[in-house]
Amino acid sequence: MQLLWQVVRFESRRMMRNFAPVFFALAFPVLMLCMFGGIYGNDPSSRLDGRGTVDMSVPAYLVLVIAVTGLMSFPLGLAEYRDRKVLKRFRATPLGPSALLIAQGLVNIALSLLGAVLLVATGWLFFDLHMPDSAGAAVATVGSLILVTLVMYAIGGVVAAVAPSERAATAVANLLYFPMIFLSGATIPLQIFPSTMKAISDAVPATYAVKLLQHAWLDSSTNVALDVGVLAGLLALTAAAAVRLFRWE
């Protein structure tokens, strides 16, 4: 355990120097919130089913914060380590490569957690964000966050497993990440999508994550069974695929 802690420290220092995930997990969602919160405030809006922009945005942006580490920085880190034979290097030491994989996962999750805290704190301090109004809602929110995190990391795991190279992993991760954040309501509210776009968004897994989180936080209307079913099914599928397909070299 002590050794794993050393590896986590090592990996977290490397992560702090990785501009893209740090910016997109910590700064970008807060900047978005400041921009849209500044423009629209948090007054109930008829366009958003009577919810405030900030109240709807924060749970949605949480998906953004999780997706950037789960879909991008986690698989890219693993692909880099495999491609450049770093995993092999550590396989020749008493450490073994699995500790690196675990450490990278932990560091990425920690980065997302920090991003989530920053985002919620910004909303609460400056934009009158309403927190979940009951203990049950809080638990549901945390539970949804955990489920969404697992799904994103499992998809990321598949990307790392099937990508033949670091380059390919970057391409695949980008192809997944951008549709995932723009077509799911994570950045642009689903409520203002035209009907064609809504139909497209139904095919994007992150849509169910956004809906589930908004429901847990705000008690907004959604088909909870469908959301949880899609996410849990996807989790089972991708986790199994990632474990089955992952190569150390």
């Binding site: 090592f10 490397r14 120097r17 990785n18 880099e80 380590y81 450049r84 034979k85 770093v86 092999k88 290097r89 020749a92």
Partner: peptide
Amino acid sequence: LQESQFPSR
């Protein structure tokens, strides 16, 4: 090891 690189950053 041959071609094994160090972790970046």
